[in-house]
Design a protein around this nucleic acid. Structure first.
Length: 786
DNA sequence: GAGCACTGGAGCAAA
DNA sequence: TCCAGTGCTC
């Protein structure tokens, strides 16, 4: 096989014809390591899929000898489809998956070699934290000081670095580190890992770490996969961690046919162990490797790219590159400053409705991004109030809901009786008289005998337990043995058996209300999904490894998601909201230069998702922890020079929060509580689509009622907004939203006015000083109108 | 042991 | 604002 085959004339060839020169040379790369530095929108996925098609069609590599790694299952599916269109249905059989799925699949086959059952459980973050909590408790440590959250994060970080418990203990000793916390974490880690092993369970990090261990300690297994995977391709290489890079190394062996694609400017997962130097130092790691650069963007208008380049330019030590496009011009990014999160949501919603009404977009062409999931709330309320269809990506997922986790716990225990976390979850669900004390006795018996809880329950007759607890355990044992008997029939049978026999479904049926109804429907949906699987293991694995974006649909809905979730997606219209220093960039990253750079890359990722129109919004005051906080405009907005931006911020007062002193000549004619121009779109649009979303509400489980109440509130608020605001009779020359001058603090903007006895309390945001609360009669504020 | 009301503490991104 | 943990009552 020549290392650089002569491709046919590209024009005749479906694999090569659609590519530009840069893409083509990458796709036609010969053997050995290759890095494709692919800027946002430069056709990364296209290069990967065509590379695979090229290997199959031109290099006659067997489709079964290729391993392709993507970042999400959704991306894997899309790639499979694209390859399918080039090479045919064989693409369905290929190994195209995420790191975690590929590892789970390999580990499933060789689990015994590591001392795990083939039907090992996969613990998600919640399960892992729960186990951490058990360990902290059992080691008699202070659960406040050693919160499951912090401890598990520390353990996860160690695992991502492939550090074993022994290694962690060593690291915690002087001269390395020696902090008491890390010493204790090492102890917890050691016990935690023992408990995982005893439970026959792996956490997310284990999938990678034990994958590496398997290949390292079992040369024959490693050799098998090396023979098999003649070519390995990796997407989003900038977000790989040490364990993943090791895996690639172990799987590729001497041939090192590793073809990786990524963009260091889009590295945004350091917090889960991703190491940007993997891509930056690719050349040093593989001195004989080839590098291809793709910098032509096919996605966004020049105006959007200008904004993106202006922001990312501020990161130091990045390889110089400038994304370009031949689509000149395009609409400038629109900036909007709102008063509050609600106001911001109102603006986003009204813009969405305007564009949709004008036929400029369909709902699915638009997306709203935010830094953290909690920010979706205000947007959702507004969209609900106006019957704009939307989907929230991430946040509380279907598989995180209590009833779903309970049901899956039954299934897990049925296939893996040792699974401690799942068993404890359901042993008393629904209640059958087994409380903390009984559970503690079981725990103790298990620890004494060095066995699992299930084995202890097997001989429950020999234990000293109260009648109710004993009876409950006998029932539970009977229930689980019946469920276990259904395992050969598949996951749907097990779920049905367990949920019926346990009385779980009966309990829900007996409970009235929207909440119980929702849960029943969710369980129904789960069993429906399970019916597509013959093997319980496969079903559980698939369910454990779905990512947030995997659940995204392409229905006619506006998509709401975090900036992290947005990676790899694109939309005609993108709103990036909450652009305030402290929100985005997140305050926790503001003191660490490296973390700030990662925030900036996150901004870059967000901006480059937009094809035609980008909106950048921020607010003056945002409710956080139950009180209003004032943040300066995000530096990421400031980094874009003003002439590149279309500033639509309305500096006139728009609506008064609660009170607005009307009078004074211009205060009066501006009107109290004048609805903003954009809120005039409000009011009556037929509330037809409500039912469409009620299914979103029923998924909420326990939050459903509160949620529905909030929605009701949102609807009525919209109705109320046109009503006049009360106007106390106090003379004022300024109102909310006005620019004012103060003798000491200088120029500022009035954020709020509240009656304070006979006087008024004025909240003013002064530039360079921040927010101040002043007493009106002493503050001597003057309107600053030019 | 179960279910409820209350309180205090925490608050980022996710396979 | 929200959630989990705690203490109280039946």
């Amino acid at each position: 096989m020549p290392t650089n085959s002569n491709p046919p004339a590209p024009l005749d060839d479906p694999v090569l014809a659609p590519l530009n020169a840069g893409q083509r040379s990458a796709v036609c790369h010969g053997d050995g390591p290759a890095l494709v530095v692919a800027g946002a929108g430069s056709g990364k996925t296209r290069v990967l899929s065509h590379r695979i098609a090229f290997l199959l069609e031109h290099r006659h590599i067997s489709p079964f000898d290729v391993l392709a790694i993507t970042f999400t299952n959704k991306a894997a599916g899309e790639m499979r489809e694209r390859i399918g269109s080039l090479v045919g249905p064989v693409a369905q059989q290929m190994w195209i998956s995420t790191f975690h799925s590929a590892c789970a699949r390999i580990l499933r086959r060789h689990a015994e070699a590591l001392g795990y059952p083939a039907s090992f459980s996969i613990y998600d973050q919640a399960d892992s934290r729960r186990l951490t909590r058990y360990v902290v408790r059992d080691l008699d440590l202070d659960p406040k000081r050693y919160s499951d959250r912090a401890v598990h994060a520390a353990i996860s970080a160690l695992k991502n670095q492939l550090t074993t418990p022994a290694g962690a203990a060593e690291l915690a000793e002087p001269p390395d580190n020696g902090s008491p916390f890390s010493k204790t974490v090492a102890r917890i880690y050691s016990e935690y890992q023992k408990r995982l092993r005893r439970a026959g369970a792996m956490d997310f990090d284990d999938l990678l770490m034990l994958g590496v261990e398997l290949l390292r300690t079992n040369p024959d297994v490693a050799e098998h996969y090396r023979q098999r995977f003649a070519h390995i391709l990796v997407d989003e290489y900038q977000d790989t961690n040490l364990a993943q890079v090791r895996l690639i190394g172990l799987l590729s062996g001497l041939a090192r046919n590793v073809f990786v694609v990524g963009d260091s400017d889009q590295s945004i997962y350091a917090f889960r162990g991703a190491d940007i130097t993997n891509i930056l130092e690719f050349g040093a790691t593989f001195p004989d490797g080839s590098t291809y650069v793709l910098d032509q963007n096919y996605r966004s208008s020049q105006s959007i790219l200008d904004a993106a380049n202006s922001v990312i330019r501020n990161n130091r030590g990045r390889p110089p590159k400038n994304l370009w496009t031949d689509r000149r011009g395009g609409a400038k990014p629109i900036r909007f400053r709102a008063e509050s999160a609600q106001d911001e949501a109102r603006y986003v919603c009204s813009e969405l409705r305007r564009m949709q009404r004008d036929g400029a977009i369909g709902w699915s062409d638009a997306a709203v991004f935010y830094r953290s999931n909690a920010q979706s709330r205000a947007i959702e309320e507004e969209l609900v109030a106006h019957d704009v269809p939307y989907q929230v990506i991430g946040g509380t997922r279907f598989y995180d809901r209590k009833e779903i986790k309970d049901a899956l716990a039954f299934l897990r225990v049925a296939v893996n009786p040792a699974d401690e976390v799942s068993l404890k979850r359901i042993v008393n669900e629904p209640a059958r008289g087994i409380g903390d004390r009984s559970l503690a006795k079981l725990d103790e018996a298990a620890a004494r005998g060095g066995t699992s809880l299930t084995e202890v329950i097997e001989r429950v007759e020999t234990l000293l337990l109260r009648g109710t607890a004993r009876g409950g355990l006998l029932k539970f044992r009977e229930l689980m043995s019946r469920a276990r008997a259904c395992v050969p029939e598949g996951p749907a049978a097990v779920l049905t058996e367990a949920l019926e026999t346990s009385g779980y479904l009966a309990d829900l049926r007996d409970t009235s209300g929207i909440e119980a109804e929702g849960r029943l429907e969710n369980l129904h949906d789960l069993i429906g999904a399970a019916e597509a699987f013959e093997s319980c293991d496969e079903f559980l694995e698939q369910v454990s490894l779905v990512s947030d974006v995997d659940e995204m649909t392409d229905a006619q809905q506006v998509s709401l998601m975090t900036l992290h979730a947005a990676k790899g997606l694109e939309f005609d219209v993108v709103f990036i909201t909450g652009l305030e220093d402290g929100v985005f960039p997140h305050y926790r990253s503001m003191t660490e230069p490296d973390e700030m750079e990662e925030e900036r890359r996150l901004a870059y990722v967000g901006i480059t998702r937009a094809r035609k129109q980008l909106y950048l919004t921020h607010v003056w005051g945002r409710m956080l922890h139950g009180q209003t906080n004032y943040h300066p405009t995000s530096r990421f907005i400031e980094e874009i020079s003003p002439e590149l931006i279309d500033d639509r911020s309305d500096h006139a007062p728009r609506f008064a929060g609660a009170w607005r002193p009307a009078t004074s000549e211009w205060g009066a004619n501006r009107g109290a509580g004048r609805p903003s121009e954009y809120s005039q779109l409000d009011d009556a649009e037929p509330a037809a689509r409500r039912s469409q979303r009620s299914d979103a509400a029923r998924h909420e489980g326990s939050a459903a009622k509160r949620r529905e109440a909030r929605r009701e509130k949102a609807r009525s608020r919209v109705a109320a907004r046109s009503e006049p605001q009360p106007s106390p009779s106090v003379e004022f020359a300024y109102g909310i939203g006005d620019d004012v001058l103060h003798d000491r603090f200088g120029a500022g903007v009035v954020l709020d006015l509240r009656p304070d006895g006979d006087d008024w309390e004025v909240t003013v945001h002064f530039s360079g000083v921040g927010p101040k609360k002043l007493v009106a009669s002493y503050a001597k504020l003057r309107p600053a109108r030019s």
